[in-house]
Each structure stands twice: as C-alpha cells, then as structure tokens.
C-alpha cells in the first residue's frame, strides 16, 4: 500500500496546478490501479494530497460513469440495452452471459466475477442501432452478435479451448 500512496502523490504532484486537476488525477489513479477502479484509500489519499474534503472527491468520482468504485474485471463486456438492441434480443443475450459467468447485476447495473476476470455491464445505446444487437468486448464493438459467438469470445478470453455448445 505504501508504494501505491507514493505513486498517487506523484500523480497529484504532476497535475495539481492544472485547471480541473482532480479529474486528470482520478483518471490516472484509476488507470494505474490494479483492477481499474478507485478504492476508498486511494480516493482519501487524493483528497488529502489536494486538501479537499473527502465528500467532494467522492461527489466527483460518483458523478462520472467513467470512474469505477469497485474492482473491474480484466475483460469488460458491455451489452447495449437500447430499444433497437432490445427488439433484437439483447435481454436474453445479457441474461445468457450473466448465467454463463455465474454472476448477476448489482444495483449499479454491473457485475464482476469473483476472480476479477470479467465485468459485465449495460449501456443505454451505442448509437449502432442498425447493427443490433451490439456488444462491446474490451472496447471492440461486435455487431449482430449471437449468444454462441459471444460465449466463444468469452471462452477465448478465458483461455478455454473448447467451444460452448
């Protein structure tokens, strides 16, 4: 933990005089964190280094969807739940993925496997409605995806050789 605090202080020192420093700092702290999220300790350390109230830093961190407050999986699967994707079966697709990974969505609309390999969450729309259903895996958009294709992708990422039937 000590090394991490020193690293955070370094990040803060680099940005503290910039306009809107807090956002740049939080972005970099998250990017350099082990599971791509901002822990309570890290947020508190940022607050302390900038002499900002804890509640203010928390307010900013919770406002932006980009910031994660829970550990994220190594691989992020984003299922579009917009109207077009919904009519093309994104709901069963989402349910299938969750069942396959053995997790269920929490109140914040995301779920991460216990081993932190996979995180699943939803978005309202990717703006790719003509290609519905759309799923993004680690930032790559997969159009008109089927359950089978998606599960194969997951298996590939998980390092499993056999395809799912």
């Amino acid at each position: 933990m000590h090394d991490r605090l020193v690293a955070i202080e370094h990040i803060v020192a680099q940005h503290r005089h910039e306009h809107g420093a807090l956002l740049s700092i939080l972005e970099e702290v998250q990017r350099t964190s082990e599971h791509n999220y901002l822990s309570k300790d890290e947020l508190a350390h940022v607050a302390r280094s900038l002499t900002l109230p804890l509640a203010d830093v928390y307010s900013v961190a919770t406002f932006y969807a980009f910031f994660n407050l829970k550990p994220q999986g190594e691989h992020v699967i984003t299922v579009c739940r917009g109207t077009a994707c919904h009519t093309r079966g994104s709901k069963p697709l989402l349910e299938k993925v969750l069942t396959y990974l053995g997790i269920s969505l929490e109140d914040d609309g995301s779920a991460t496997t216990a081993d932190c390999r996979f995180t699943v969450h939803t978005v309202a729309c990717f703006g790719q409605c003509a290609l519905a259903p759309v799923v993004s895996v680690d930032g790559v958009i997969h159009s008109r995806i089927t359950e089978k294709q998606l599960l194969m992708l997951i298996d590939a990422l998980a390092g499993k050789k056999e395809a799912v039937v």
């Binding site: 109230p53 804890l54 509640a55 203010d56 928390y58 307010s59 919770t62």
Partner: peptide, 20 residues
C-alpha cells in the same frame, strides 16, 4: 466549512451522501 456531505451520483440516482 466542514463538508461532511455532498451531492453524489447523478440523474435519478442523485443523493446526498457522506464519503463512500
């Protein structure tokens, strides 16, 4: 000048909350 609470999250999920 205490700032124990703040507006957190946004949109329909907005709530007044303490740190974490």
């Amino acid at each position: 000048s205490v700032s124990a609470i703040q507006m957190t999250r946004r949109g329909l999920s907005t709530q007044v909350a303490t740190f974490a």
